[in-house]
């Protein structure tokens, strides 16, 4: 049976001063992912190995790791695709390590929260007590839907060279989400988000290395969102931007009579 060599980062807080690499041998199975290999190690070799995972199908974004020097979702990475039988798995860079492969993603969620990742409605009464849905065209939806697929896995932040050097830079995840909401016609929080992004440690520190989009496992393309955010901000400051009209609310359905009469019951009612 062919075997794989897993070189896994280990770190136990309180005991280890720095992380080190431990080597494991894992039998190769067809269709095996890196996460399968880690689960094999935990179940059969060393049950103290810690890593985070949940859905095992690339949806939850929990198992982001630095696999053979590239940020990837462990569940979404078949070992055969790596083209080698030596697999090095480290915790995501740019995030503190809690234990072994578990990165502390607090920073990601705090930054995400800070850009107000929700629709800020111009009509607070309607937002609190909605009477109907907001109308939106297919074209408007296409303007942001790509960015709405973000699963908050943190791979883009691990890849970003600016996040690597500036702890206060919001990072591709939150800036991408800022654009996603700013371009939504139902939202009225553009000014707040522009103000937040337009700071010394803000959007202008992105120098388009493009690593965030390369690493994104969901095709979200945060680099594109950030450049579009910059354009929107420049146009806004030069007053060249068309003001977006707030989304209108759907009219209640008019009462109508069915075109075909509902047939009578053929079975006698008891």
């Amino acid at each position: 049976m062919q075997e794989l060599t897993f070189k896994v980062q280990r770190y136990l807080p309180g005991k280890d001063k720095k992380a080190y690499i431990q080597q494991f041998t894992v039998p190769l199975r067809q269709g095996m992912t890196v996460l399968d290999g880690l689960i094999y190690i935990k179940e059969n070799v060393d049950n103290t190995l810690s890593f985070r995972s949940s859905c095992r199908m690339g949806i939850c974004g929990s198992c982001g790791m630095f696999i053979n020097n590239f940020p990837m979702l462990a569940c979404h990475t078949p070992v055969e695709e790596l083209g080698t039988d030596r697999i090095e798995v480290r915790s995501l860079p740019n995030f503190p390590v809690i234990r072994d492969l578990v990165a502390d993603l607090d920073l990601l969620f705090e930054k995400h929260k800070s850009i107000k990742p929700y629709i800020i409605s111009p009509d607070t009464e309607e937002a609190e007590e909605p009477t109907a849905e907001f109308l939106q065209s297919g074209e408007e939806l296409e303007g942001y839907v790509q960015f709405a697929y973000c699963v908050k896995c943190g791979l883009c932040m691990a890849a970003c060279p600016t996040v690597a050097t500036d702890a206060l830079f919001p990072g591709p995840q939150s800036l991408g989400q800022a654009y996603r909401y700013c371009t939504d016609r139902r939202d009225a929080g553009v000014e707040e988000r522009f103000h937040q992004a337009d700071s010394r440690h803000g959007v202008w520190l992105c120098h388009l290395a493009g690593a965030c989009s390369e690493a994104c496992p969901k095709g979200v393309d945060p680099a594109l969102a950030i450049q579009l955010l910059k354009r929107a901000m420049v146009f806004d400051s030069l007053r060249l931007k068309k003001k977006k009209k707030p989304a209108s609310i759907a009219q209640p359905l008019a009462e109508s009579k069915p075109k075909i009469d509902v047939p009578e019951f053929t079975v006698k009612q008891p």
Partner: peptide
């Protein structure tokens, strides 16, 4: 942010990531 970096093992790549940050392609 600063608190969590103090609690856990810091892992920020820093300026060395300009030279080599991982197996990225051309633009990086």
């Amino acid at each position: 942010a600063a608190g969590s970096e103090n609690r856990h093992l810091p892992n920020r790549l820093g300026i060395k990531s300009w030279v080599w940050g991982g197996n990225y392609t051309l633009e990086r």
